[in-house]
Design a protein around this nucleic acid. Structure first.
Length: 259
DNA sequence: TTGCATGTTCCGGA
DNA sequence: GTCCGGAACATGCA
């Protein structure tokens, strides 16, 4: 699931369950997900430390641990899960932080994404790659400069993490649908007015989704209709259409979103 | 059995 | 250099 709003939910979750007391031990149940350190040095860096300053940049969740920084990416199936009891670990729990009062699991079925440790800005950037400014709160002028100059299709541009960070497949489709812009339209052919509308709708979708920790699949949202290939546009009732843009399934309304 | 899935990266080609 | 499509990554589900 994880796009910007989901990771924002994980940030709050980490803040609630993973900070304020020291990590007693680290259980690396699947070393594949530790992307830039062997389990032993990862454990040494974290055990006895307290996580502080949980923060998010795009789809990345970061936290300070002593002189190091923990970086988490959730791929398509990652999440955080707290448990206070002594139930068996879930089979997809890959890395588990043990605290005195319970444990916090980095769970990830498909093993895209992972967990990194960084001790410097360059080391962090090697993990995350170049990231544009976070999509949440991006000012209109900056959005216009970043997105409006690109020749590529607007949906693909929105999803490029080095342009702006945090927008994934669902968020891009939702904002484009609301702004009535066809996902295949070249970004640099959008008028000022339409770019402004796209900016406004994206900010609104992000703000409302962040409160829920997900892009809500509610009535009135494209995200609430897109899974069913027989769905109609929640706004005008026209049959939705699907195609591939930027390697992912784009969903749009052929009546509301004309080329 | 096949196709598809909300992410990223790498490659070849236009 | 830019942009695109396709494949790969790993796993589960319809």
């Amino acid at each position: 699931m994880p796009e910007l709003p989901d990771v924002e939910g994980f940030r709050r979750y980490l803040s609630r369950y993973g900070t304020g007391r020291p990590i007693r031990s680290v259980d690396v149940r699947d070393g594949d997900l530790l992307r830039n350190h062997p389990p032993q040095s990862f454990r040494r860096a974290l055990e006895g430390r307290t996580l502080t300053r949980p923060r998010r940049h795009g789809k990345w969740l970061l936290a300070t641990a002593g002189d190091a920084e923990v970086l988490m990416h959730f791929g398509m199936t990652g999440l955080l899960k707290w448990s206070a009891g002594d139930e068996d670990p879930h089979p997809h729990d890959r890395i588990v932080l043990e605290f005195a009062n319970g444990r916090l699991a980095y769970r990830n079925m498909r093993k895209f994404g992972g967990v990194w440790l960084a001790r410097s800005d360059p080391e962090r950037e090697r993990a995350t790659g170049r990231l544009g400014p976070d999509a949440d709160g991006l000012e209109r002028d900056e959005f216009r400069d970043l997105v409006g100059r690109r020749r590529g299709r607007v949906k693909a541009v929105l999803m490029k993490q080095d342009v702006l960070a945090g927008v994934g497949n669902l968020l891009a489709d939702e904002a484009l649908w609301r702004a009535r812009i066809h996902p295949g339209c070249p970004a640099n052919r959008l008028s000022e007015r339409r770019l402004g509308a796209l900016h406004r709708e994206l900010q609104d979708v992000v703000r409302r989704s962040n409160r829920r920790g997900r892009i809500p699949p509610d009535p009135g949202w494209l995200t609430g209709a897109r899974d069913d290939r027989k769905s109609k546009c929640p706004r005008c009732g026209t049959g939705l259409r699907w195609t591939t843009i930027g390697g992912r399934t784009a969903c749009w309304c052929p009546r509301c979103q004309r080329r």
